[in-house]
């Protein structure tokens, strides 16, 4: 049995809500946004683990908290056998090289006053990966070649405003890749790009997974992309994972009503195709005071009394497929 590269255990991130002055007079109680509430999963070496869900369900917060870019409230993250949340900054630094992140918005994630060379070589300088200037130039050039910004000398001295969105995203990826990481959090890396550019970037990510055994935490709201990319997936709703397991099993036989609703919302090219319809109504409730019991119960077509009272735990329904739902017998008939 292989050891997981990354293991997340009971991760929680609560953000304090700052009420107005008058509200603080009325009630003493501190309110919290439970952005990530008791999330556990693992990522195997060379695996792409997906996190999917609606906007605001805590996918991005989970990704950033794992890298300790946001201070966690509770829980632990074990990377290659070491718990990283309690490490002092100096000991965390080598893990920063091994765990990288690609952001969603390539227009925000590059410093407008640095050129491509400075952006990519920054990590090399921080971790002292190059012995000489020429070695550094070589590393930067090879990173640019990896993301197919060729010839490198044409891009190396450009500033972000001189690049297109797709090129910027490639620079962001090169900045992460130059450190030779083992694990990358990809936070919706293609959702802001043209469809034409998406495919080539996704293809590159898959190539590095095969060639360099890079593992990804792939955050997305697009189940079609998730199916193309991921080996396993977790479906998040209001800060909790409601269903998790092998991507094909979850896409083909989703068991949680929420996953089923998500699947029903994916457009199908054939207009005559028969579709199961699980319609959910309403909006995602605010995570400040999430519903009691199962957080999905106000929108769930199968909700019973127990769903309002008790929070369902993740139960294994088949090999590598866990679901958190009290009403599994309903969903199985779909």
């Amino acid at each position: 049995m292989m050891e997981p590269l990354l293991e997340v255990r009971n991760l929680r991130k609560y953000f304090p809500v700052r009420g107005g002055f008058f509200r603080s007079l009325l009630s003493r109680r501190q309110m919290w946004v439970k952005a990530v509430d008791d999330v556990s999963f693992h990522v195997m070496p060379g695996e792409i683990f997906g996190l999917a869900g609606e906007s605001g369900c805590g996918k991005t917060t989970t990704g950033k908290t794992i890298l300790k870019l946001i201070e966690p409230t509770a829980g632990e993250v074990i990377f290659d056998g070491t718990e990283i949340f309690n490490l002092p900054p100096q000991e965390l630094k080598p893990f920063r090289r091994r765990m990288q992140i690609i952001y969603q918005d390539p227009y925000e994630s590059l410093n407008p006053r640095m050129n491509v060379f400075d952006i990519i070589s920054e990590g090399i300088d921080i971790h002292e990966l190059a012995g000489s200037t020429s070695e550094k130039e070589e590393l930067v050039a090879s990173a640019l070649e990896m993301v197919e910004l060729t010839p490198p000398e044409e891009f190396i001295f450009r500033y972000p405003h001189e690049l297109s969105g797709g090129q910027r995203q490639r620079v962001c990826i090169a900045r992460a890749l130059v450190l030779n990481p083992e694990f990358i959090v990809a936070d919706e890396p293609v959702s802001m790009l043209d469809v034409s550019i998406r495919a080539s970037i996704l293809k590159l990510m898959l190539k590095w997974k095969e060639e360099s055994e890079i593992s990804y935490l792939f955050i997305t709201h697009d189940l079609a992309v998730a199916r193309h990319m991921c080996d396993r997936i977790g479906i998040m709703y209001l800060g909790k994972i409601v269903e998790m397991g092998d991507i094909d099993r979850i896409i083909e036989t989703p068991r949680h009503p929420y996953t089923q609703a998500l699947m029903a919302a994916v457009p199908v090219p054939d207009p005559t195709a028969e579709r199961t319809k699980v319609m959910i109504t309403g909006e995602v409730p605010t995570p400040i005071e999430p519903p009691s019991g199962c957080r999905f119960h106000p929108r769930c077509p199968y909700a019973k009394e127990i769903c309002k009272r008790e929070t369902p735990g993740l139960v294994e329904v088949e090999r590598d497929h866990v679901v958190a739902c009290h009403q599994l017998e309903h969903s199985i008939h779909l």
Binding site: I101, Y103, D105, G123, H127
Partner: peptide, 19 residues
Amino acid sequence: TFVEAARALGASGGHIMAK
């Protein structure tokens, strides 16, 4: 985001302020 990206690279506070 680019400041957070620098933190993800392992940059120290001084480095982020200066660069």
